[in-house]
Design a protein around this nucleic acid. Structure first.
Length: 267
DNA sequence: CGCCAGGACACCG
DNA sequence: CGGTGTCATGGC
């Protein structure tokens, strides 16, 4: 058991921020995360601290980096103009959101699934896919790791379609084959700069600009990436006259984007 | 039942 | 280059 008290850390906000689809509220102040082929239970105590059900070694080597706890999120707020009432409200409301360091493979498949689906539907599809093609996690009832590339590459378009994936099943099968046969080296892409990484991801069927930016932001922690979905476009139209001042947040616009998304969707 | 969802893609002018 | 129709399915 590990207890922490971190500023700018709110597991409930993170769970509802649309970046991770396997972090669920299991009760009042309790959460369960399936990630990195493991299960992590998290308890939010009354005094604002958190208890993680893992060893200190596991916390330091896996979960501290996963939750990006070594980064100071106060620095992302300094360039927001006081007159920007929308962003001021969004940062106050979403205080405690962090950009999780998830894996490129899971983000690639998850965000191919995400197109034209709402968040509950995405979570359901990821859960079905994991239950059918992921490894059961030892010592945990009904918990399954995210499927390996080989597992998804082998199961076929028809079986994938039966996981409520619809027309995306062909994209997912093709992407899984590229990764399984080495055509696409997701770990090797870490060496590329943002623009080259973006271009490499666009070669994957079913990956356009928006999904590529999500994979960059949530899978490679490229926090300059700024995914534009229907919610973000709606905000930019309604609050910024169609032109959001991205350059003001150069280098970390993706973090700002996440506050915008979470706040907009809450209303 | 109808509308919408963290879009991509082919096609068109 | 920018606009338009289509794609399959579930949540609300």
């Amino acid at each position: 058991m590990v207890t922490i008290k971190a500023d700018y850390f709110d597991i409930g906000a993170i769970a509802e921020s649309g970046q991770c689809f396997r972090l669920d509220r299991t009760g009042e102040g309790s959460f369960r995360l399936i990630a990195l082929d493991r299960v992590l239970r998290i308890l939010q105590t009354g005094d604002g601290s958190y208890q993680f059900d893992c060893t200190p070694e596991e916390f330091d080597s896996l979960w501290r980096p996963y939750f990006d706890l070594d980064e100071d999120y106060a620095r992302y707020a300094v360039n927001v103009p006081p007159a920007d009432q929308f962003l001021q409200a969004a940062l106050a409301f979403g205080r405690g959101i962090r950009i999780l360091r998830q894996t490129p493979w899971e983000m690639l498949i998850t965000f191919i699934i995400s197109q034209r689906k709402n968040i509950p539907a995405i979570k359901a599809a990821v859960a079905t896919l994991s239950r059918r093609y992921g490894q059961p996690i030892a010592g945990e009832a009904d918990c399954f790791a995210f499927p390996a590339p080989q597992a998804l590459a082998a199961c076929g378009d028809t079986a994938l379609r039966a996981c409520a994936l619809g027309y995306r099943s062909g994209y997912i099968e093709a992407a899984a084959r590229m990764v399984a046969d080495g055509t696409l080296d997701l770990e090797g892409l870490r060496a590329l700069d943002d623009e080259a990484l973006h271009q490499a991801l666009l070669r994957v069927p079913g990956v356009g600009t928006k999904v590529a930016n999500c994979v960059m932001l949530f899978g490679y922690h490229r926090i300059a990436a700024f995914p534009r979905d229907v919610w973000i476009n709606r905000i930019i139209d309604a609050e910024y006259g169609g032109a959001f001042p991205l350059e003001r947040y150069a280098g970390y616009a993706g973090v700002i984007q996440q506050y915008m998304f979470f706040y907009a969707r809450s209303r």
